[in-house]
Design a protein around this nucleic acid. Structure first.
Length: 497
DNA sequence: CGTTCGTCCATTAATGGACGAACGGTGCCTTAAT
């Protein structure tokens, strides 16, 4: 069966969306492929369809458990039974059962962390993998170097699995990030399918405020006036909570905050309520977004400037998936970016921490027990992220005890890598700040960051090219509808209690 | 780097200011002991 009839038969579509066919052709002909497709263009089809065309199992590396669960569910709805997410949600016996019949699955979703498990790797080696997929592949570059080092190991995993055809999927990657992906995954002369990151229906607005109070007033004004639903991004969980509370006090009742401090259950509930219009405004941290497929988000406000352009583009890209006019507003106060310098420092280990940590390993003459390791962590006041950063480099010392020369080499390497990483992150923060402070077209600025050129500005482009935020305010009739709805809510609550 | 929180001390006795420390986003995976 050819891919067009598969598309019709398995997915019920008559034609491909832009980019899909090229990417699918590329992977089924056995080429390693890097695909950058805009959000909402159906990236998952790019590996789902080949799953039916090719013989064997498609292995999908996914950054988030919730994303995996989501995709498993979607495939099940389409009638696919041979699909599983192998992760910590499964009980010990379930895991064993899955591993025992791994070859029977058509789609297996897995996290990068799980792929360092020896037993899992052993089993994966024995089955035939038709396609190795890295979903949200920019995570390799964005998270791999510090936050989730197991992303850096995917290249080795790929090698161990006999270099299956590989597909790296993302919506936002600069040329440098794509090179990073190719190098770290050890891709072999990959084909690249790159589509624009531009979203012409999103008006981009940067607004400068002089102090915190003004920022708060502006935010409350905007959320009352703008067409909803919308998302507000914060770089602080506390502020996200506080502002959500203030909005509720101001009479907006469909508001919630969302961040990693919430339980899994609460997070799922809020996502669902937002999806089904029971919530209109989410005060969120960067935890909110990946895998949220809501079409009609009308605004995205940034209360804090993101740490890099990639994050900004991902976050504003959650607006206007339906193609209708939407707005992105960044509220900027001089010095906002400093928060990110602080966050960065607490993620990277200091010289003293590095030296002492490896001195301890050397002194012990063998790999420390779990309890010993926690002791070292506590005495050096290492955060979990810092510890993992160090452990990633300490990996070779697990096999045989540390030699002095080797330890010196490793510590030097870590300090080096850390400094490179710090410099890179500082550069990204500065680039973001420059964009905020610039007096040229915002869209052009974003596109040039992604090595693209802007042919012509859309009608409502950005604050530099002109139009007015008011244009995105809800009309009087919409406000009336809203209050009527609230009345209905109140009445139904009264009656059905 | 800027904000917030806790502690200390000085006063006409329960506030207030000064000062320093801590905090500030992201997510996998925990095979232990009740």
């Amino acid at each position: 069966m050819n891919i067009h009839s598969l598309l019709k038969k398995k997915f019920g579509y008559n034609s491909f969306r832009p980019g899909q066919e090229e990417v699918i052709q590329s992977v089924i002909s056995g080429h390693d492929t890097v695909a950058m497709l805009p959000t909402g263009t159906g990236k998952s089809l790019c590996y789902q369809l080949p799953g039916y065309y090719l013989k064997g199992t498609v292995l999908i590396v996914s950054p988030l458990l919730s994303l995996m669960q989501d995709q498993v569910e979607q495939l099940k709805i389409k009638g696919e039974k041979q699909v599983v997410a192998y992760n910590s949600f499964l009980s010990v016996s379930e895991r064993k059962a899955v591993l025992d019949k791994l070859h029977r699955y058509r789609f297996v979703f897995i996290s990068p962390e799980m792929l360092k498990n020896e037993r899992v790797l052993e089993r994966l080696k024995r089955i035939s993998i038709s396609l190795f997929v890295v979903d949200e592949a920019h995570c390799i570059s964005q998270w791999g170097y510090d936050f989730r080092p197991d992303y850096l190991n995917l290249g080795n995993v790929r090698q161990l699995l006999g270099k299956p055809t590989t597909l790296a999927l993302t919506a936002t990657a600069t040329k440098k990030v794509r090179e990073d992906i190719i190098q770290l995954l050890h891709l072999d002369q990959p084909k690249e399918w790159i589509f624009s990151v531009d979203r012409p229906n999103i008006y981009i607005h940067v607004e400068h405020v002089s102090d915190m109070q003004e920022k708060e007033v502006r935010l409350l004004h905007l959320v009352q006036q703008l067409q909803k639903p919308g998302i507000i991004y914060f770089s602080s969980k506390r502020l996200a909570d506080e502002m959500a509370k203030k909005m509720r006090q101001a009479g907006l009742n469909k508001v919630a905050s969302y961040h990693a401090g919430l339980d899994q259950d609460e997070r799922i509930l809020i996502q669902q309520q937002f999806l089904y219009q029971q919530l209109e405004i989410i005060c969120a941290t960067s935890a909110f977004g990946m895998g949220i497929n809501k079409e009609n988000v009308r605004f995205v406000i940034h209360y804090h400037v993101p740490a890099q352009m990639e994050s900004y583009v991902q976050e504003i890209g959650r607006a206007g998936r339906d193609g209708n006019k939407s707005i992105a507003i960044l509220l900027y106060m001089e010095g906002d970016e400093h928060l990110h310098y602080g966050l960065m420092e607490q993620e990277l280990p200091t010289d003293a921490q590095i030296d002492t940590f490896f001195y301890e390993l050397y002194r012990l003459k063998k790999w420390p027990e779990e309890t010993m390791l926690t002791e070292i962590q506590q005495s050096l006041q290492l955060s979990d992220v810092q510890l993992r950063f160090l452990l990633h480099y300490a990996e070779p010392l697990k096999q045989r005890p540390a030699q002095k020369v080797q330890v010196e080499e490793i510590t030097q390497q870590i300090k080096n890598d850390r400094d490179v990483r710090r410099q890179e992150r500082v550069r990204k923060i500065q680039e973001m700040k420059q964009w905020v402070a610039s007096f040229t077209c915002r869209r052009e600025g974003i596109l040039s960051y992604f090595d693209e050129r802007l042919d012509h500005c859309p009608l409502n482009c950005c604050d530099q090219c002109g139009t007015n935020v008011d244009f995105y305010y809800q009309t009087k009739s919409e406000i009336k509808d809203e209050s009527k709805e609230q009345w209905e809510d109140i009445l139904s609550q009264l009656f059905y209690r």
